[in-house]
Amino acid sequence: MGTGEIFQGIDKSDSRRGLYKGTKKAALNLDELYECNGERLYRFLLFKLGSAEDAEDVLQESFCRFARYDLRWRLIRNPQAFVFRVARNEANRFLKRKLGRREGERVMAAGGARALASVFAAPDEPDLALLLTRVEELPGEQKEAVYLKIFGGLTFREAASVCGVSANTVASRYRYGIDKLREAMGGCDER
């Protein structure tokens, strides 16, 4: 997905190298930003919060932040990771406000209850339904790593900057999560 298109008049390669920095044309185009990331962010927030209303509120708040970050956009090297990071931080703030600090932090660490069930339509195939249940049972950190890598379409490096940990940590969480799923689904012999 092109990250450069969200800046008017700036081509993709320029935006990746951060060359839009200081150019007058590098104004943030919110329409394009939504086109590139809006629905993915909505589903990520749905995954984090488990409620469509909350996810919409937090998505709106995140886009308000993007609109206010007009200057900061010119310094950002990876807009895709940045938007996920902002949305994640906003979701965490929302949970703390809604549930109180302690409970909010607990939910953040554990992941929302039935979070993936609210993001994905119930699969017709029994195997897929079982797989979805098994993913729900993963620890919160592993579930988030699997979500960001597979459903968010982020690289390990991007997912790491979203979660605020190293790329190796995210890769380990992802690998442990996938291994657990393979084991649970009886696919150990296929590795």
Binding site: F120, A121, L128, L131, V146, I150, F151, I178, L181, E190
Partner: peptide, 13 residues
């Protein structure tokens, strides 16, 4: 069963 490929088959709402 390839777990990663199966996960990608899930349809988002």
């Amino acid at each position: 069963m390839d777990v990663e490929r199966d996960l990608e088959r899930l349809k988002p709402v």
